[in-house]
């Protein structure tokens, strides 16, 4: 409030200065500093906001606040030169007028004054249920009863009904037909593209694994031939001195060979595991029927290093695979 008041005195001073120049000049010279105009607008906005806050005081018939407000806005108008500020002024004036109307409505001169809340309470007494828990409430029966009572007060035309009922309005279904194909086609497109891609990737992966398994089998068969069909030491076969990872991969690929019956692992006279390819499919199936073990093999980097030392492996039997950029 204080700031508003000080602003007002400023405004008055400016107005007085302007008056020295001459009233005609004021009107003819709308040029006004932007900062000054902004200040005026700010004052108007503060004024309007303040009025909104104190609305109920303003419309109270007992108070004179609204006249005071009218005088204040008159003061505010003095430095106004351009339309934009004047628009705010009319906005404020319109508000005052509106409050004035409400104030006039709130003014009751009659002896018996109508109190809406009192009326509501009387209605609740008349039509509300007598139950103590139902305070301030009119139940359905109460409303029906009230309706029955006020029926004579309304010249309402009676509802027209067919004796045997009327046709129900058919609900028109228009939407689904044109929309569905659109949705479907868009869905299809969305669905097919990613699945194709995914399967493609998977295929490649599968193919990569299968190819590796085949390569490992080829190596195994090669060494088997070279060693004149003697079983090959399993560790010598899979160990890669340059890479622990590739060693594990070799272990992984050879496990496929065992699973699919292309090779077998057994313990030789020295108690060490050896591997040899299975030559004939018939033999392989018979063999598979005989014993089918599952073994979990662990190989830690430490064990890998130890094995390399023990077997003195310098070059891998399965050549190091070039790492694919992926």
């Amino acid at each position: 409030m204080n700031s508003v008041k000080s602003n007002q005195t400023n405004g008055r001073d400016e107005a007085e200065d302007d008056e020295v120049v001459g009233e005609n000049m004021d009107i003819l010279q709308p040029q006004q500093k932007e900062s000054e105009r902004r200040q005026i607008r700010q004052r108007y906005r503060d004024f309007i906001e303040d009025m909104q806050k104190t609305q109920h005081d303003l419309i109270n018939p007992e108070s004179d606040a609204i006249n005071e407000r009218l005088r204040e806005v008159d003061e505010l108008y003095k430095p106004v030169r351009t339309a934009r500020e004047a628009a705010l002024d009319s906005c404020a004036l319109a508000m005052i007028a509106n409050y004035g109307r409400q104030k006039a409505q709130a003014l009751h001169t009659e002896f018996v004054k109508f109190q809406p809340v009192e009326f509501a309470e009387k209605l609740v007494n008349l039509f509300g249920s007598s139950g103590a828990g139902d305070m301030g409430n009119i139940p359905f029966e109460g409303w029906v009863q009230m309706g029955e009572n006020i029926r004579p007060y309304f010249n309402r035309s009676p509802a027209f009904h067919f004796m045997a009922g009327s046709f129900e309005k058919e609900v028109q279904k228009r939407r689904p037909t044109p929309k569905e194909p659109k949705d479907k086609s868009s869905k299809d497109e969305k669905d097919t593209v990613p699945t194709q891609l995914r399967s493609f990737e998977e295929q490649q992966k599968n193919e990569a694994t299968t190819a590796e398994v085949e390569r490992v089998l080829a190596q195994l068969q090669k060494y088997y031939e070279e060693s004149e069909k003697n079983p090959i030491c399993f560790f010598e076969f899979i160990l890669n001195p340059h890479s622990f990872g590739q060693t594990i991969e070799n272990l992984f690929y050879s496990s496929f060979l065992i699973r699919d019956g292309y090779a077998k692992i057994f313990i030789d006279e020295d108690g060490l595991p050896v591997i040899e390819p299975v030559e004939k499919p018939e033999e392989e199936t018979a063999h598979e029927k005989q014993k089918h073990h599952q073994t979990v093999v662990t190989l830690t980097p430490q064990e890998w290093k130890e094995l390399l030392k023990v077997y003195e492996i310098k070059t891998p039997m399965i050549p190091t695979r070039t790492v694919e950029p992926n």
Partner: peptide, 13 residues
């Protein structure tokens, strides 16, 4: 009046 009509007209009144 139907019950619905009655209650609504009560409110209108």
């Amino acid at each position: 009046w139907s019950d619905e009509e009655k209650s609504k007209m009560g409110l209108v009144m």
